[in-house]
Nucleic acid binder design. Structure first.
Lengths: 339, 339
DNA sequence: CTGAGGTGATAAACCGGTATAGCTCCTGCA
DNA sequence: TGCAGGAGCTATACCGGTTTATCACCTCAG
């Protein structure tokens, strides 16, 4: 017989469905002997719970969702999400909870997905990424009463649980290092201005500038694309007083920037130091290999999964977990300025 | 009231649950007038079917699965999967079917996932990628009677439906082009030897060699990593009779190869032409930008989704859809050989 | 005028689990 | 000896849909 049900097991064991359910879920109500017998029969018939049936009775579906609102074109090259997804799954698989992944165009579509998921009971909770300054998703999720955990930022005045890394400290570490090498003209090619982490990084650069005696420390925002990364670099290197170091908010933009430097005859790291605020194979494929900030994104995802499961178990849970600080991996693209 | 059920709608409309179900699913059994009234009430109460309840009754869960058995580390940089997933979702969203994505370590784990999914009724069907030569997954899926569609290769003597591109023709196009430029020493840095598409590409090169009068046309297999791509390139360029052109089975390896050429003082495209059998931003970020074979992976995924839905609807369906041929995008990394 | 057949609806079973009320013993204590 | 109480189990309702059997009613042909 294909796909045995607990009724089949109950028949074979000569007990009721209820007893089987008790035994399989490890709850009192059956003797140890009976329990053992039922478990053995279930094992032998290779029984597995029907996920829909279980979801209908208990109201949990053992599934959580992740929606990414970015164009698929840029997603591919960002190793961030692949690592994050792996980490999430690692944290979820322990309790055999599955992950629903959806890539959508914009935040509006993302909220629609949450509404659908909530009304169709498709997920027990969701993970929020790319938090923006006044993020409409936070109120939407609260209205839906959908458990959620925010990745990479505080969840709106503490409304949602979160897992975050200290972008500010990380950026300060980069700027401190460049200043220690002797750089005084440092530029920052930032990402989308309405992302919270972009804001935090920009503020860190601005705050550090006077303390380190930087002559100039502009932060220029982009859309995270290679094209704008390149264009912004071209603009910076065309100034009469060029920066001697540039920090890029993503590895893709850093690579694009390196290309522009080569094309304009600016030697790296001789005339220009380059640092990427994110690491991946990409930075190591380059010549020179890029100095980059490495985050343990896999672990990040794993912790986020655990926090989310806690929130699902008890929606009142309010965890704001700070993860391990990222570390600066120095490679060949940074050196003291020419003179 | 939160989350209305069809019973609520039935109450309000003064009809039975059954009538509501008929009306909402557009099947006969209710008059047009009643149907319209029920639909309006459902709309107004913003009713959505409870996915688990529906899955329990009808035995379909409106969800399909994709398991990728590759290390997460290499996944991030491969834009292939991000595009594929987007395309799949585009093909599925029309019928609001969701996609379960899982990244696992190896094929064994992948088959375990299929077993679990089948016994827990978590998915209606699956998409198979990275087909190997004697792929154990095909028999496993047939034993589980889990509908499936194979991407990028024939499904084991026609056992499974498939969506595929003609790797052979594509490789011939590349080699023909290089030969037309005047190259006679062409090397091929291939991927994992047990992948079917790797085999097909190797065979294409071997078959074309005599026709084009190539002096030497070795295919060297790798594990698709940047490290082995670089090592193999180093080996090729250290020979007394260097190849004048190298075709790489992935863009990541091509980029790694370009790095090795630069490091060894071999100018591209002056002394060496480079072609990548796969395209992404990566190839365009390089200097020189790489000539690459572009496939419409998004469309690929969309078509695969449609075929899978057909197979789920009728498991006897046997479609082997050949997708649009990939095109060679010529950029700056290819030129006639030095003399 | 009667019976066949179609239409529009209802009631109830069903899917595969979980949760709960209740029943039957058995034990221990007064 | 009587009874409270708990262990061990059964029967059954329930979750929210879909599906089937049944039925009342109307129309139309014979």
């Amino acid at each position: 017989m294909a796909r045995p049900t607990i009724a089949d097991i109950a028949d074979k064991a000569g007990v009721s469905k209820g007893a089987v359910s008790f035994a399989l879920n490890g709850r009192p109500g059956v003797s140890d002997a009976t329990r053992a017998r039922i478990l053995q029969i279930a094992e032998q018939m290779s029984w597995r719970p029907h996920s829909a049936a279980r979801a209908l009775g208990a109201s949990r579906v053992d599934s959580v969702g992740l929606v990414i609102a970015r164009p698929a074109r840029t997603l591919g090259v960002e190793p961030f999400f692949a690592h994050l997804v792996s980490g999430l799954q690692s944290g979820l698989s322990a309790r055999s909870i599955s992950l629903q992944l959806l890539i959508v165009e914009d935040t509006e579509a993302e909220i629609e997905v949450y509404k659908r998921w909530a009304s169709e009971h498709r997920v027990d909770g969701v993970i929020l990424v790319d938090l923006t300054v006044k993020d409409p998703r936070i109120d939407a999720l609260r209205a839906l009463e959908l458990p959620a955990v925010v990745i990479g930022g505080r969840g709106g005045k503490g409304a949602l649980a979160s897992v975050w890394a200290d972008d500010r400290d990380a950026m300060l570490a980069i700027v401190d290092y460049l200043a220690a090498l002797g750089h005084r003209r440092i530029a920052h090619v930032a990402g989308t201005p309405n992302f919270q982490h972009t804001q935090r990084r920009i503020r860190a650069v601005r705050d550090a500038a006077p303390r380190l005696g930087l002559i100039d420390a502009p932060s220029l925002t982009t859309d995270f694309s290679d094209a704008e990364g390149a264009a912004t670099t071209r603009k910076l290197l065309s100034q009469s007083h060029r920066p001697t170091a540039i920090v890029y908010d993503s590895d893709v933009m850093a690579v694009a920037g390196l290309g522009v430097a080569m094309e304009m005859g600016v030697s790296v790291p001789g005339d220009l130091s380059i640092v990427a605020f994110d690491d991946s194979i990409l930075t190591q494929l380059m010549h020179p290999a890029l100095t980059a900030l490495s985050r343990d994104t896999f672990e990040f995802g794993r912790q986020a999964a655990e926090v989310l499961l806690d929130v699902i178990a008890d929606p009142a849970t309010m965890i704001n977990l700070r993860t391990a600080d990222p570390v600066l991996t120095v490679r060949e693209s940074t050196a003291p300025p020419a003179h």
